[in-house]
Design a protein around this nucleic acid. Structure first.
Lengths: 236, 236
DNA sequence: CCTCCTTATTACAATCAAGAAACAAAGAAG
DNA sequence: CTTCTTTGTTTCTTGATTGTAATAAGGAGG
């Protein structure tokens, strides 16, 4: 699957053997990996490399996996970052996901490489589906959308958006340049089982334009198809 | 839309209620369906009926969904066949393994009919734009048609086209060099259930030529047959 | 050169899609 | 419980899109 090829994964593991094993199998699947040998390094690399997912050993020198987890969760920017925990014993596993520690999934050692890769993919998939799951930033001219903070600003001025408006704009930004049908937008923002008229999209587009005059020009309707956010030459 | 009307979907499900439900909603959307009650039958029907997509229940008598998946994936002819898995529980491991074994997506029961249909469509769309399916870009001399953006440009100059004009041109480009009868064009662009005079095509050809003088020469009428877009020596 | 059949061109009317605004319903906040 | 916000639907309107019909033009066979 080509989808995984641009995902970056931070592997936090002090045992070289396991680190190399995990690295090898993830890279074979097209992921990029970043290694970290301990908790301190892990936190540093999360900041620097902005990985899409963290594979985190529970047993680490200096600062254990749970601590790393807690720290990551306490900062808005990384609160949503998917974490896959590696645990040595099966007994501990219940407490990991169940408790408020914040790991999203776990694998117990010894694990099969295949199982690990499957979990990683599943986690990424799950997160991908969730709205607001990406600690990302969209730039479009003077507009900035911060997903982690759930904020949109024009220049320095924050513009409050409602949930639907935000979701809609996010989808437009993420797929800028492409024509998005009302049906696609409804599925993406409203959910796969939303029953309602497609005109709902029109109304929300209009509301977006009212709040963000920038979009008046930038969002164009493609008759009988849907809407498109024009590429901005200024954007990033 | 005429696009889905020729797609065939194999539904593999042992529970009659669910089978009928799925069948009903897919057919309401214009898909043709083929039922199979178990894994053996499923594999047989895949061979015989060559469906475009398989909706596959994970829990089946005799041979479960994962086995069917594996078998389909192991044969080159069906390795790329899109598979949508139906799972009873939202249990993580099942879905992970399912995806790892090559299901392309899954829906957990109970599911809403709309969600299922949406997933099926999304899957077909995703697959359609990958392998030998339709290209994202048509080039013809200085003309470029970008399907995702729904844009046609001559050199660098964009030429706005209406929905019908766009569809018509797309069909001509895709089948360049062939003579296309008016009836074929009506079916492809207007849909199979269009009632109208075949002269309509002529008018739209005319409008295309007006907007794109390049086509004045390139699109020729073949008397008592239809129209043809001449091969362009410059094209790709 | 005529005649019949097919296509080109134009003009016009019917239809349709999207913007706007107002309203109603559903939710959240207090 | 009340009030304000968010969300979805409906109606009206306007302008673009689309289909058809009328007329001109072409072309092959006699």
């Amino acid at each position: 699957m080509g989808t995984s090829s641009h995902k970056k994964i931070l592997i936090v593991e002090d045992e070289q053997d396991i680190l190399q094993l995990v690295k090898h199998y993830l890279e074979k699947e097209g992921f990029r990996t970043v290694p970290a040998m301990n908790g301190i390094e892990a936190l540093k690399k999360v900041k620097e490399d902005k990985p899409d997912l963290v594979v985190l050993d529970l047993m680490l020198p200096e600062m254990d996996g749970l601590d790393v987890c807690k720290r990551l969760r306490s900062v808005p920017e990384t609160a949503m970052l998917p974490i896959l925990m590696l645990t040595a014993k099966a007994e501990e596993s219940d407490t990991i996901v169940g408790l408020e520690l914040g790991a999203d999934d776990y694998v117990t050692k010894p694990f099969s490489p295949k199982a690990l890769v499957a979990r990683v993919k599943a986690l990424l998939r799950r997160v991908e589906r969730m709205p607001g799951g990406k600690p990302d930033l969209h730039l479009y001219g003077t507009l900035t959308m911060n997903l982690a903070r759930h904020e949109v600003t024009i220049g320095t001025q924050e513009v409050p958006l409602t949930a639907k408006e935000f979701g809609l704009l996010e989808h437009l930004l993420r797929h800028r340049g492409r024509v998005l049908t009302r049906e696609v937008l409804l599925n993406a923002v409203w959910g796969y089982d939303y029953y309602g008229t497609t005109r709902t999209v029109d109304v929300h587009i209009r509301r977006l334009k009212q709040k963000l005059p920038l979009l008046e020009e930038a969002v164009v309707s493609v008759k009988s198809l849907g809407y498109k956010l024009k590429d901005s030459d200024v954007s990033g």
